[in-house]
Design a protein around this nucleic acid. Structure first.
Lengths: 129, 129
DNA sequence: TTAATAGTACGAAAGAATTCGTAGAACAAA
DNA sequence: TTTGTTCTACGAATTCTTTCGTACTATTAA
């Protein structure tokens, strides 16, 4: 079990999102995706991905001249890790408060609400642990 | 209505937490609180609080030699703001996923679960908004 | 009144993250 | 071949944040 998740920086997280969403990708592809959000130079993306490679956040296939990058860390694991940190720093650890805030201030569909209810029931039954 | 919340840095957020929790405080007090968590030089705390003052995150009473600092921004407002950002960057905007993660991976009391149910009901009834 | 103590102000060093320019390798097309 | 294009590598500039040293002022105690 590999617990040592290094907290990705903001730029790294954005790239991970793209890799999670699209699967293994070239730097060019990632850079183009990034540019949909915010002007980003090609070598900037490249450099960031090289750093992520050193940090083992991603791996890459170097068989061809154009490398193919893929996420090494799993989306859920990173989310959990970031959530823990965030909970701590912004909500002093109160998951309750965070959930109330998250639900309270935005529109959530009936379907989603029901899904949450189902989860609550499951937790209460002790299915969670 | 003042929407222009500048995202506080990590160090600034820690100080805000102390001010929210303890009310108006001196630099010395804040610094001592910070030191319960992590060794922090006095002038480091001072400098950070001065920057926060410039940024209008805090105000201060300068009547006496020892200034008294107080938060200007409200805890809920900052939390909401940080949550929005976090949701976006880590969960691509899906409050659902975040809530599931937050509830799924930790122990939550019956009372809390019921509070959430109540909130869900309220949202569904359209009472929310 | 003088010395020690406790403050503020502030520039600048140190660190961390991001951005960018340039060099050189690989490859394709002419 | 030669030329243009598309890559990687990588150092260095930039920017943002945090930390710290130093100068100076007010206050307190001897």
């Amino acid at each position: 079990m590999n617990n040592k998740i290094t907290k990705p920086t903001e730029a790294e997280l954005q790239i991970l999102q793209i890799l999670w969403q699209n699967g293994p990708s070239t730097v060019r592809f990632v850079n183009e995706k990034l540019n949909e959000e915010k002007k980003t130079g090609y070598t900037t993306s490249l450099k960031t991905m090289q750093i992520m490679f050193e940090k083992k956040l991603v791996k890459r296939n170097e068989e061809n001249k154009t490398h193919i990058y893929a996420a090494v860390v799993r989306e859920e694991d990173v989310q959990k890790h970031l959530l823990d940190k965030f909970l701590d720093s912004a909500f002093k650890g109160s998951a309750m408060k965070l959930v109330m805030q998250a639900l309270g201030n935005r529109k959530t569909s009936k379907k989603e609400l029901d899904e949450i209810r189902a989860l609550l029931d499951k937790i209460e039954k002790g299915g969670n642990k």
